[in-house]
Simulated assay, not measured.
Amino acid sequence: MAKQLQSLVIHCTATPEGREVSSGDIRRWHTDPQPAGRGWKQVGYTDMVHLDGRVERLVDNNEDNQVDNWEITNGAAGYNSISRHIVYVGGVEKNNVNKARDTRTDAQKKALEDYVKDFHKRFPNVKIVGHNELAAKACPSFDVQKWLKELKIDEA
């Protein structure tokens, strides 16, 4: 049964700055059996922002304010049935993968801004959050709430 969409969660791939990631990489990391992957039934994100700013759809959805069972992705435990998830490629230092860092390229910043503004226009009552606001993680390696204020996106 569909549930009301309540949040858009922003993530990073936690990959080194400047290293591209493919949708195939994401699928292997998330859905391959353990120990190679996580063994999930579905990937963690609806959309991915590549280094060049291209936004790639990873999981189809019907673009409404409901999360149908077939639209659920595995981005944040406990929030998946009420959220959509977007990820940008990067999020850790090039030479230290244990050090979180906002590695968004200018193209990624612009694409993520356009995506979030469009999403907020269509779903003004849906809360936009970073993964780190839902779990003890550094992801997405930047302060989403501060960024939303800079973009002048009024939260519901």
Rank of each mutant, 00 (worst) to 15 (best):
N95A: 07
G78M: 04
A135T: 14
H131A: 15
R54N: 11
L112Y: 00
V89P: 01
V92W: 00
Q4W: 03
K109F: 06
M1S: 15
D102F: 08
R57L: 11
A135E: 12
A111E: 01
D102N: 14
K149N: 15
Q42W: 00
V9D: 05
A14P: 08
R38C: 11
E20N: 15
G39D: 11
R38L: 15
E150P: 04
Q6K: 15
D32N: 13
L134P: 01
C12D: 14
G90W: 01
D60I: 01
P33Y: 03
R57A: 09
R122G: 05
R28F: 09
P35I: 14
W29N: 09
H120W: 10
G90F: 00
V144N: 08
S23H: 08
Q42T: 09
E133M: 07
W70A: 06
F123Q: 02
N95C: 07
A77V: 09
I82P: 11
K99W: 07
H30K: 04
D64P: 10
S22K: 09
Y88V: 11
F119W: 08
G39L: 04
V67A: 03
T13S: 15
Q66R: 05
W147T: 03
A107F: 00
A14F: 06
G130S: 08
G24E: 15
S7R: 15
Q145A: 01
N95D: 03
V92A: 08
G91R: 06
R101E: 13
H131T: 05
V87I: 09
T46V: 04
D32P: 02
T46A: 06
N65G: 15
D102L: 10
A136M: 14
